[in-house]
Simulated scan of single mutants.
Amino acid sequence: MGNPVNVNGVTLELKYFRKFDTNINVENVPTGPLVNMSRDESGNSATPNIVTVLAYLPDNTLNPVENTNGLQLQGNEVYLNYYGVTSTQIVNKDGGYDTVSCRDFRVEFNCDEVASLYDLYYVQFAYQLDAGTPSVDMILVRSENDDPETDRGTVTVPSTPPPPTTTVK
Score class of each variant (00 low, 15 high):
Thr156Trp: 13
Asn69Ser: 14
Asp119Asn: 12
Arg142Tyr: 00
Thr154Leu: 10
Met37Arg: 12
Pro162Gln: 05
Val35Met: 08
Asp147Thr: 13
Ile50Phe: 05
Tyr16Met: 05
Met138Trp: 08
Glu66Lys: 14
Pro158Tyr: 04
Pro30Gln: 04
Thr133Pro: 07
Gly153Trp: 12
Gly153Glu: 08
Gln72Leu: 03
Asp146Tyr: 06
Ala115Thr: 07
Glu144Tyr: 07
Leu117Met: 07
Gly84His: 01
Asp147Gly: 00
Leu34Phe: 10
Asp137Arg: 10
Asn76Ser: 15
Gly43Val: 08
Asn3Tyr: 11
Leu71Pro: 02
Val10Ile: 15
Lys169Pro: 15
Ser135Ile: 00
Thr52Pro: 02
Ala46Glu: 13
Asp119Arg: 00
Val114Arg: 15
Thr68Gln: 15
Asn81Tyr: 04
Asn36Met: 13
Lys93Cys: 00
Glu27Val: 11
Asp151Arg: 10
Met138Lys: 15
Arg152Asn: 04
Ile50Tyr: 05
Lys169Ser: 14
Asn25Ser: 12
Leu117Asn: 02
Met1Asp: 04
Ser116Ala: 06
Val168Asp: 07
Thr160Tyr: 05
Val141His: 07
Lys19Gln: 09
Thr156Tyr: 11
Arg18Lys: 11
Gly96Asp: 10
Arg103Lys: 13
Gln124Leu: 01
Glu113Pro: 01
Arg106Lys: 15
Ser101Trp: 08
Asn145Glu: 10
Gly95Ala: 03
Thr99Gly: 02
Val78Ser: 04
Glu149Ala: 12
Val53Leu: 04
Thr150Ile: 09
Val157His: 14
Asp112Gln: 13
Ser87Met: 03
Pro158Thr: 08
Gly96Asn: 15
Val26Tyr: 12
Glu113Val: 14
Val155Leu: 15
Pro148Phe: 02
Asn36Ala: 14
Leu34Glu: 12
Arg18Asp: 01
Arg142Lys: 14
